[in-house]
């Protein structure tokens, strides 16, 4: 479930990055790196689990699925927070600097 949520997040962020110049300016590429990197790594985890458990891998217990979904959503939230911090630090549009100097 975590892998599925991360892959969906990776695909959505890739599409946004591809179609929107504004997204590229706002460093959405950082999200791509995080989501695709984690997706590939969790894919390896999933393959290893499949080799060990066989078809049972596709029928997880409801409680496990819920916990994994909760983890997946938390991972997406964490990645978004990292991206926002990166955005504010880099300040590619100069908006933060402008706002801070206006209030001086």
């Amino acid at each position: 479930m975590t892998l599925l949520i991360t892959v969906i997040a990776a695909v959505i962020s890739t599409l946004i990055w591809y179609v929107s110049p504004k997204a590229r300016q706002l460093k959405a590429g950082v999200l791509l790196y995080m989501f695709w990197g984690a997706s590939l790594m969790w894919l390896v985890d999933a393959v290893v689990e499949y080799i060990e458990a066989g078809a049972e891998f596709f029928t997880p217990a409801a409680a496990d699925m819920l916990n994994d979904a909760f983890l997946g959503v938390s991972v997406v939230a964490l990645a978004l927070v990292v991206w926002v911090i990166f955005l504010l630090v880099k300040d590619p549009t100069g908006q933060l600097k402008k706002t801070l100097t206006e209030h001086k």
Binding site: L32, M34, G37, A38, W42, L71, V75, L78, V82
Partner: peptide, 20 residues
């Protein structure tokens, strides 16, 4: 830099999973 991004990003999110 693309490789770095994927490795750092992926490892970071996986570290969070391990913390979880």
């Amino acid at each position: 830099g693309w490789l770095n991004g994927m490795l750092w990003g992926g490892s970071g999110l996986l570290a969070f999973e391990h913390l979880w």
